[in-house]
């Protein structure tokens, strides 16, 4: 018995020593990355399980093909920053030249992104920004202040500028959600909206089930609720479905950011009014072009630089809502019952 234990302990000690020795030996020296003809771009979404990001990747792959680059689209299933870190690390190790990332937690990925940058990888963020010191350029879907004002106006018009409203958001930590909510609150201070009151911000975590439950909770807990703003494609669709299921269409108005295909049925049934978004494929497309130009040295993040992004036209690097350097895709696209049949994504 004692003999076995001694053996086991000796083996443990030997194993640990070996690993340490190996580690020390390996750390003497630095690693290298290879450079190839076309660029290798790693497209890292918040998660691969939400359809919006799949739309981004379609545009991104198209752009890569036009530019002669290779693009890899992969990401975690959990919507957390730490879940993205292994992908950042391996992208850097595998010799990717650029990482295009949308993250739910800029702080968690910043150290990994900085380590990648130290290895020569260029980081471009899109859709949801990382910490500014860990990326070169941020590609924004639209100007954040515009979202704030247009969403408040959209719901205000539907409810006659009077009554209680609520916001159904995504994750509490989501940077663009919080920015948009901030601008919505600023917009609500205008005298035009003085009879409207924001009673609750609910969080659906970009999950259909949770968003539906949160909507149900809003309906139950706030009997005087007149309108809901849901600036997330998952949330607005779940809210519309929930309103329809509970028979509240028309009694509680709805607006938000949604995909026209998802919302068509509800808009026609009167469960949702005007809502907005942007072209998700174009966003991925633009972000890839930006990454390419950064790698080619044509873009450095200086304010005022211009470039042409394939079929989308010319763009300029600017300051947007106090954030810089940013490339903005364009103004929000508004969908109405009249024009919704024109769009198919």
């Amino acid at each position: 018995m004692k003999h076995r234990k001694k053996l086991g302990l000796a083996a443990l000690a030997a194993g640990v020593t070996l690993i340490i020795a190996l580690a020390v030996a390996l750390s003497a020296g630095a690693g290298t990355t290879k450079r190839q003809a076309g660029y290798k771009i790693f497209f890292l979404p918040k998660t691969t399980t939400i359809p919006v990001f799949t739309q981004n990747s379609i545009g991104a792959k198209r752009a890569a093909k036009e530019l002669g680059d290779t693009l890899t689209y992969n990401g975690p299933t959990a919507v957390t920053g730490p879940a993205q870190v292994p992908f950042i690390n391996t992208a850097a190790r595998q010799g990717y030249n650029a990482i295009v990332i949308s993250t739910p937690d800029g702080n968690a990925v910043a150290p990994a992104l900085k380590r990648a940058a130290a290895k020569g990888v260029k980081v471009v963020s899109y859709d949801a920004d990382t910490r500014p010191d860990s990326r070169v350029i941020f590609v924004a879907p639209t100007a954040n202040s515009l979202i704030g004002t247009s969403q408040v106006e959209a719901i205000g018009k539907q409810i006659g500028y009077k009554g209680d409203i609520a916001i159904l958001s995504a994750n509490v930590t989501s940077p663009n959600q919080n920015t948009w909510i901030k601008f919505m609150k600023i917009a609500l201070k205008k005298p035009k909206y003085k009879n409207m009151k924001l009673v609750k911000i609910a969080y659906g975590n970009d999950e259909p089930t949770e968003s539906a439950k949160q909507t149900q909770g809003l309906i139950q807990a706030y009997p005087n609720l007149k309108g809901i703003i849901s600036p997330t494609t998952v949330g607005v669709q779940a809210a519309a479905q929930e309103l329809q299921q509970e028979g509240k269409c028309g009694k509680i108005k709805l607006t938000g950011l949604g995909l026209p295909n998802d919302m068509r049925k509800y808009v026609k049934a009167g469960c949702a009014g005007n809502f907005a978004l942007w072209n998700e494929q174009d966003l991925g497309y633009l972000a890839t072009y930006v990454a390419h130009y950064v790698l080619a040295g044509k873009l450095t993040g200086k304010i005022g630089e211009t470039f042409k992004a394939g079929h989308l036209g010319t763009y300029k690097v600017q300051v947007s809502d106090g954030n810089k350097p940013v490339v903005v895709l364009g103004p929000p696209l508004v969908f109405t019952p009249q024009n919704i049949d024109k769009y198919h994504f």
Partner: peptide, 22 residues
């Protein structure tokens, strides 16, 4: 440490493995 390559976390894990093994 050691020229930006050896992770401190790894040393922590090995240290605890040794102590707890004992």
């Amino acid at each position: 440490i050691a020229g930006n390559q050896l992770p401190v976390a790894l040393l922590i894990l090995l240290g605890f493995a040794l102590v707890l093994g004992l």
